[in-house]
Nucleic acid binder design. Structure first.
Lengths: 185, 185
DNA sequence: GAGAAAATGTTAGCGACTAACATTTTTGGG
DNA sequence: CCCAAAAATGTTAGTCGCTAACATTTTCTC
């Protein structure tokens, strides 16, 4: 018998149905009640698992990883450079299974305005974590805030670029985006 | 007789009532129907003027100015630097009246999660304009996209910092934020 | 297998927003 | 000044995301 709880199973089912419907007919054209019906569950249950419709697509597995990686960069680098190089280090540690799931989600996000907006909100939280890491290491809070925000914006731009163009690799797209921030270094 | 059309008058009235209510009780705690009532107008009319509740706070007079200013920077600068310095040039041309209105709006935005998120959406449009300007001048599209996004993120961070701290000046806060992006230049 | 706890369902409702259609108000030309 | 066209506003009704309160069922644990 599966060692997974019912909660986990329902969540997995809802996630799969939601992604499939979003891919088929678009995020905005898919209602929560439709997703719930498709998973044989009530609308209320959907919200108990996700909190919002957007959360069905926006799961962020990176935040903690990124913040930690940044903390491992040498302290004498400029704040923005530390952030950039930390992210780069963190993203090279993803396996294929993780990458394909990321790709699926990012595609949906990239093609939906309301989701790109929602991602910005999530980025705000990630930015706070990165800012904190930089501050802890002695960077001026204001500079840290700007650096963290800029980093995530560039990173998102790279992800979207990758999602929209078949011929780009994740690593390549992110490299391009991040290298812009390194200007004269 | 005022040469202003009725449309303009209604819009000005709605804007003032909306800002006042948002300042008093918060954005999320203020309903559109409340604003409409306070302006002696129907709810429908509000939406005909603003399109969304957020638009009552998020009017962006900068987009075109910024894009133009960036276009005037020397072509041999790195994309991010051109963007940064263009913005700096654009913002120094604001008069006191404009500044105080900006301050009022930014305060409300900074203190409201849903508005910060909505701002991100607006930034996306501004970013597209900036990216276009950079591309026109020969910058690689992907690099331009990342640079524009990073710039606006840092700029927003500076604006929020300014709005939250009494002791900062707009110019100073923005300087701090933008200088982070100039790293090794 | 019984009881506690977790998961789910139902109903009711709020607030943002839209569509369709009716009504009033403005405004520009005669 | 007046009157018709156009612009602005109102009304009604409905969708969708989301929440609260309370009832019911299912799952886990002992």
């Amino acid at each position: 018998m599966a060692t997974v709880s019912k909660r986990e199973r329902t969540l997995a089912l809802l996630t799969e149905r939601a992604l499939a419907l979003f891919e088929e007919q678009g995020f905005d054209q898919t209602s929560v009640s439709q997703i719930a019906a498709s998973a044989g569950v009530s609308e209320m249950t959907f919200f108990r698992h996700f909190g919002s419709k957007e959360q069905a697509v926006l799961v962020d597995p990176f935040d903690p990883v990124i913040a930690r990686a940044i903390g491992q960069r040498p302290l004498n680098e400029a704040p923005l450079l530390r952030a950039v190089r930390g992210v780069r280090a963190a993203l090279t540690g993803l396996d294929d299974a993780e990458l394909s799931m990321v790709r699926r989600r990012v595609r949906i996000i990239a093609s939906t305005l309301s989701l790109r907006v929602a991602l910005a909100k999530q980025n705000e939280e990630t930015a706070a974590a990165i800012q904190q890491q930089l501050i802890t290491d002695g960077t001026d809070p204001r500079a840290a805030r700007a650096a963290a925000a800029a980093l995530l914006a560039a990173l998102s731009a790279g992800l979207f670029e990758w999602a929209e163009n078949e011929d780009t690799t994740l690593v390549g797209a992110i490299e391009t985006a991040l290298s812009v921030l390194e200007v004269g270094a």
